[in-house]
Design a protein around this nucleic acid. Structure first.
Lengths: 228, 228
DNA sequence: AGATTACGCGAACGATCGTTCGTATACTAG
DNA sequence: CTAGTATACGAACGATCGTTCGCGTAATCT
């Protein structure tokens, strides 16, 4: 890249930051560290995530992590954000290829089950593992976890609403009720497979989801994502 | 009590231990401490339960707790056992007044919802709070939590089987499948009410349980425990 | 060129962790 | 009466916690 081009970029306020070699290096470090952090937190919770063990796991000094994230709370917030990015990319984004309604809903649920089953995070679903940890401790970390889960629940419910509006589900369907039940099955599969070290809960959950959606009026050929 | 009577008790090998004033005092202390311990662990998990804070919460010295339970692992095991006693007394024992089958099943589920909703433990259901933070760490503590939950799941499933055998539920009912779904609804109500600080999830869960059992063939008049 | 900013690391801080020791007290056993 | 046992407490142990400081390096900004 010519010096002229560099100057042109550097003179653009929006891109100046992105071109800052120090921040680029720092962001790369943060990304690497956060990969270990989400894994550790999925096992030990956000409270059990310690800077010392994270430093060892990512091969850096303790003070480096402290510098990169300012404080433990900053680290926790960044960890939640990183986990959320993974969650969204693997579950929500992938389901967007399906049309709104039952098809996208079924894809969403299948992706969520796979994300847990594949142990994308060592301790299973990141948010299931951390929700219990923070839900009794007010503060920005709890708020971040809560927001992520509320958004997730809301997205499921939105797809149910689309399905009802589409006529794919019976008009009498209560979207909040159905979304609650579907989320419950997903989370039970995650927690029980972790507890029993068994993959069968995923089949039980998928079957329950399929039957529940069929009972609500969904056509079987739009539920193939939930087949065994 | 006369001295003769005391001697008579003391000479009975089975009751000698129970009459040992030192152990009586110790057991009373353990009971008191464990009440704080189950509460703390329901909030911070069994790992987040620390001897220091438990000492403060129960108004004793740190070394007293260490003596009473030998080690942190001993404390954790005793805490799980104490929580299990409460769980069994409030949920399982109370349901035994109902006849086996759908009625006992509905009572069981109602008691479980109430036990969570009433915040018998500050952090909601003890086992939901602690399962997440031990399920990735092998050892006797994880085994104790796992056993408690497996027994609980098994008891639900046993009532489903009784109901099928009674003819209260359709013969085609898969007991493992139905028990899984009912447990999922119960746990989702607990976790979501904690996360959102809202009691509505309990109504959503009760409604789902009732409709699911009705769909499996249960008579409405045997599901009154799950009515709103 | 010089001042500033961001990363990276080792060293150290006070606090808390789980555990152990010594000692005191109460009760039992022989 | 003497030994032994079970609680109870304070003090201290080494380890780890989150945080801060100083110093060096690299990149940016004025």
């Amino acid at each position: 890249m010519s010096k002229v081009a560099v100057d042109a970029i550097a003179s653009d306020p929006a891109q100046r930051q992105a071109a800052d070699g120090r921040r680029v290096r720092g962001d790369a470090s943060r990304r690497t560290v956060l990969q270990s952090a989400t894994d550790l937190a999925s096992v030990d919770g956000l409270d059990g995530l310690t800077i010392g063990r994270l430093a060892t796991a990512s091969g850096r000094g303790k003070s480096s992590i402290a510098t990169l994230f300012q404080s433990k709370e900053g680290l926790q917030l960044a960890t939640v954000a990183a986990a959320r990015d993974v969650f969204t990319a693997l579950i929500v984004e992938r389901a967007r290829t399906e049309p709104r309604g039952v098809r996208r809903l079924a894809s969403l649920l299948r992706n969520a089950l796979d994300y847990s089953r594949d142990r994308v995070f060592t301790g299973g679903c990141f948010f299931a593992a951390t929700a219990a940890d923070v839900d009794s401790k007010p503060g920005p970390v709890r708020d971040a976890v809560r927001t992520a889960l509320v958004d997730w629940y809301g997205y499921i419910e939105a797809q149910v609403r689309h399905a009802v509006a589409n006529g794919e589900l019976a008009a009498v369907t209560d979207p909040e009720q159905l979304a609650f039940e579907l989320a419950a099955l997903n989370e039970e599969a995650n927690s029980r497979s972790l507890l029993l070290q068994d993959e069968r809960p995923y089949d039980l959950a998928a079957r329950a989801m399929r039957e529940r959606l069929r009972a609500a009026g969904a056509a079987p050929d739009r539920l193939t994502a939930l087949d065994a």
